[in-house]
Amino acid sequence: MKKVSVSFTLNGNTVTAEVPVTWTLLKTLREYFELTGAKEGCGVGECGACTVILDGEAVNSCLCPIPEVEGKSVTTIEGLANEDGTLHPLQEAFLKNNGVQCGFCTSGMLMSSKALLDQNPDPTEDDIRTSIAGNFCRCTGYVQIVESIEMAAKESK
């Protein structure tokens, strides 16, 4: 398989991956960098478990061909906590308000909501729901996830 060399910023570090040209960003994160926080829930961009932030936008990394990441900036769940190890307000809120149950959708939920709060620090409930519309969850009914994001938005102010 033809390989490609792709350089980009990953959670603040400059990195280069040499991976088959057909690989997605998700596969590269999970297999090459061993960052397994982003999950493959469907592999076809329907469930959002693989969501990462690419140049400020929440994207389904399972749909993102790795060559397209060249020169861009990627933030994954592993890069969400603060450098001193303390948790991001979103992470704190999800733990406090039961926004996480089985946890499989959680990385994607957190990255979608992080992208939202970065762009809109004072979102309405509708904004929040729209931001996670592509992130499926079977455990929570979304109620406490939405509340957690609201809580984090307030905390961050």
Binding site: T36, I77, E78, A81, L87, F94, N98, V100
Partner: peptide
């Protein structure tokens, strides 16, 4: 759910 913090950090 602090005991499950691993779930919010990947």
């Amino acid at each position: 759910r602090t005991i499950e913090a691993d779930k919010v950090t990947g």
